[in-house]
Amino acid sequence: MDWLNILNLTGGELIGAYTAAYVLCALGLAMHFGFTGLLNFGQAAFAALGAYGYAIATLTFGWNMWGSVAFGLICSAAFAVVLGIPTLRLRADYLAIVTIAAAQALRFAFATSAYDKVTGGANGLSQFGEDFYSYNPIPEGRYPLGALDFSEKEIWIRIVGWSLVAIAAVVMLVLTRSPWGRVLKGIREDEDAARALGKNVFAYKIQSLVIGGSIASLGGMLFVMSSQTNQPQTWGTNFTFMIWTVLLLGGAATILGPIVGGMTFFALLMFTQGILEGLVNMGWLPFLDIAQVGQIRFLLVGLVLMLLVIFRPQGIFGNKKELQFNG
């Protein structure tokens, strides 16, 4: 087994652009679930709106990068408000059902051929990143990092991606440690108590949904930017549940949690794939072939998620003290 190669690939995942994209989505979900208690199972929809908003603004309207980013953010904020007005008065479990349904409905709307001039239908959209890569200051070439080497584009998207993660983390840190964040936590604990103290619970929930959704939509833009392809099937429920895994792995009501959770998750995924492929090649797993390894590792991820929720529900960074009270 080529251990060095496995470790290199694993290390590459730690700083991957996809990893940064998932981390952004998980940070947004931390705002929704960890700090406000909103059980949002439609996070993929916010990411999809960021991605489609950007791509449509660039390809259909011919806008530059800044305009396209703004349009993506506006789309996801508008979705948050439209989704929030009827549903944020519902109990948490009903909100979960509505968000998952809304995310699916949105994905089908993107995939339908009725609007394929704008959305690209089932094929999605591609080649919308020209303006983004035109800002790249790094000269063309190959840049080795350990045993891996990156093109100038790959380095650029990683720099932008992880800078966005850093900015989002700082913004969330400031917000959650302010009196505003304290009100959110109060709502998470008991919204009627917050109301009885004169807090406009509905307005705070909408704000939380918009902020978390905007951060996730940046994640969505980043996600489609590295390959410059945006396909509707990307934004299914599995995308949402990957985000949940990342969030719960790190710790829901923390800022560092989603970041380290995301890095751990994707490194682990790559590591298991490397090991499994190695074992298959050595003939130790005769019931598997290389093509099945990709599926098996998600099965293992599911197992890890279950074990995590059972034995360490507070995640890596969660406060153990908090958990003593929930059993």
Partner: peptide, 21 residues
């Protein structure tokens, strides 16, 4: 919440302490 802001504050029969604050 507006009632509370006008200066009429209530408590609950089943106490609502905000546990994780």
């Amino acid at each position: 919440y507006k009632v509370a802001r006008l200066g009429m504050i209530r408590t609950f029969q089943l106490t609502k302490a905000l546990s994780l604050l």
